[in-house]
Nucleic acid binder design. Structure first.
Lengths: 117, 117, 117, 117
DNA sequence: GTGGTCTAGACCACC
DNA sequence: GTGGTCTAGACCACA
């Protein structure tokens, strides 16, 4: 895994996990790697992994069984979608459309070329 | 003006000015507010405004008359468009579309509801 | 059984057993569940149950017959009361009252509504 | 400030700040000490202070002005009271009363001796 | 100056 | 073995 320059690593790790949940690579009740394991794997300090897990737990996306590890929660996928979808549609989309308008980019035309991806 | 959590304030201020240039609220040769004025207005440290102006000046979007103030350059609009357009299409758009896919948002449908804005 | 966030599970299990002794759901000479049984029942590692039993045994609340199991001791109830009562009154109560004061909760009023439980 | 053995330092620091807000030693819009300052003052690592501040910010009790510092939010007091009061009454109080009953402590009598504090 | 992130490494309680 | 907390110290971007 390679990290983007300007976004905190722990958030990138969290996002990555969310993507894997959305794509169902990780499913509810799955145990995710321990902070140490994943730290080794990614070449990152366990504390940083911890922070990512903390972040996800605060949203109810993962949960902890004490002394055992972290697990994907049952509602993980719905939570992620609802949080991100709402944020995307209410906050980001208007900005994007406004910006396209200012830049003179026509959304409809654009889509013709990009929908195949 | 409200500031986004994770983006530097000076960039947000610069973006805001660009938007006003694109929408022709500011036109070539217009004098923009002094660093102090704008700082007061936005409740922001003048140094931060300075940084935004520096940034815009480095792109040739605004220029400085010593002892007088900052002004919009003649080519401001074209510069902004050329820079932002290619960045938008090449870097941001793919990410946006990928994300919409993951979230199960259909771009074409979305547009029907949003084109009126 | 659900476990509190910040208190060790083994202590919560021990407390729970004490409550059952105080309420006489468990009586002297009763045999309590084996470590394995209770572990299964609570979805908890048997070691954790063991630790709870060890803890209670160290206070003389339960005792072990080798190869047979754990049993409630004759003096269990008195021991629990004497230990917990003084700890409650000397240590916890002052904190509780102080906190209620800060939160603007009036102890006397509260009791009127709660004494029926 | 002295720290309790078994509760995380960062939470004790957060609680302490809450107490000061409740008692109006700190008021809305006040700037609280920087993480470094308070770290020095308490003989604690700045990271630990940071964690306490993070925690409080997540409840909206304090907020950050970037590059400037942390400030008490307008609603700080109400937030603290509502959070703690609800937790106290709904979660802790029933346990306390149940425990007193089991231990044979009479709430009404107790109050007579303690209300003077 | 401020906070924010990250590392390396330690120690601890708990399972 | 697991997570959780803490320290010391570094580096960075931002105001």
């Amino acid at each position: 895994m390679e990290f983007n320059e300007h976004k905190p690593i722990y958030l990138q790790i969290a996002d990555n996990l969310c993507d894997k949940i959305l794509s169902e690579e990780w499913k509810p009740e799955d145990r995710i790697p321990s902070v140490r394991e994943l730290g080794m794997l990614l070449g990152v300090n366990p504390n940083t992994i911890m922070r990512a897990y903390d972040y996800l737990q605060s949203y109810g996306i993962i949960f902890n069984k004490r002394g055992v590890g972290y697990f994907i929660s049952k509602e993980a996928k719905e939570i992620i979608i609802s949080v991100q979808k709402q944020q995307f549609i209410q906050e980001e989309l208007p900005k994007i459309l406004k910006r396209m308008k200012l830049l003179g980019i026509n959304p409809s035309e654009l889509l013709k070329n990009n929908l195949d991806n």
